[in-house]
Design a protein around this nucleic acid. Structure first.
Lengths: 172, 172
DNA sequence: GCATTATGCTTCAGCACTGAGAAGCTGTCC
DNA sequence: GGACAGCTTCTCAGTGCTGAAGCATAATGC
């Protein structure tokens, strides 16, 4: 029998024990970090399992979803949006192309650049699975009330922007 | 010049555009998911870069930190704590052993089981780098006030436990 | 007590992705 | 109009981890 206690797909850090060498502010921040990592990992595991039913990774789904909601995009734009490496975006688009879900189109005004665009098959797939996927996420989040979700979102947006080195209220 | 727009080390999903087919509750949950993923990715990138200065991955650091704060642990315990696969824990402990930071000890009462324990070198390393690491995390979180951190932590704990399939207020 | 089932760790092939480098294209500044 | 900095994409070797199978040991049922 295989053991493999379903690993939550993402590594979560050090659930903090009490370390007397830390001041209370630091210890509290560390606890938040641990809790955030675990929540993220647990929800990611569900989201990942959901798209895996259709033979997709989360990164692939992210690309499909972006193209579905925004139309054709330059590879570089997609890359920034789903946060993968430059090599990664090429690799992922290749794979989606091989699956017949995405196609590359050349850019008329800049011959270095290429667009990624959904094929009809890709559009149909996203239209089919996106609502279910959204429901999976929503169900995971629904354990806290909407106004709490709103507050958490505001706080985490601040954390995320600061950590990513962005201005506090950038447009994009 | 290499381009490689520093990928935040973790894949973040689909920043939601407005999809009229979704009800507002779902759309809001989805936005939270995106924001949480990005915040997590950004902070992870910083944490990861911090431990990378010492030639460690976050998973390795997680093991060292757990052993430092709790003493020797069975491999299976460590595995559950840092959320890696069964194969992963063997692999990681092997690598830490090769670096001379961790050693395996056999268990007196169950000859299947093995303990992982810090060596002197490992203990010294954690003692050296843990405070800095905690400070890096704390700095990232410090952009929101302590009481807000507390609220976010409470909310996310609920989300994490529910998504991981645990009871709402389990002890561990 | 002996089969059966469960548990703890290991092995190993495989996979998703990174990151450094390179090739091609564009615009700009002499 | 040529050099060159700066993008955009692609290549590919390398990495860190997963997950299924497997071995050894322990616990349980009969």
């Amino acid at each position: 029998m295989a053991t493999t206690t379903r690993p939550q797909h993402d590594l979560a850090p050090h659930p903090e024990a009490h370390d007397p060498s830390l001041d209370e502010h630091t210890a509290s921040a560390l606890r938040l970090w641990v809790i955030m990592s675990r929540a993220q990992a647990a929800v990611t595991a569900q989201a990942s399992a959901d798209v895996a039913r259709h033979g997709l990774t989360l990164a692939e789904f992210g690309i499909l979803e972006a193209l579905y909601h925004r139309g054709p995009m330059l590879l570089g734009e997609v890359q920034k949006r789903i946060l993968v490496s430059s090599g990664g975006i090429t690799f992922l688009v290749d794979r989606l192309t091989a699956k017949g879900l995405v196609e590359r189109r050349s850019c008329e005004y800049d011959r270095r650049a290429r667009y990624a665009a959904l094929t009809d098959k890709g559009t149909a797939l996203v239209a089919e699975i996106f609502p279910e996927h959204a429901a999976v996420i929503a169900r995971a989040m629904a354990v806290i009330p909407p106004e709490e979700q709103q507050q958490v979102a505001n706080s985490l947006r601040t954390v995320g922007r600061a950590a990513a080195g962005l201005p506090s209220h950038s447009a994009e």
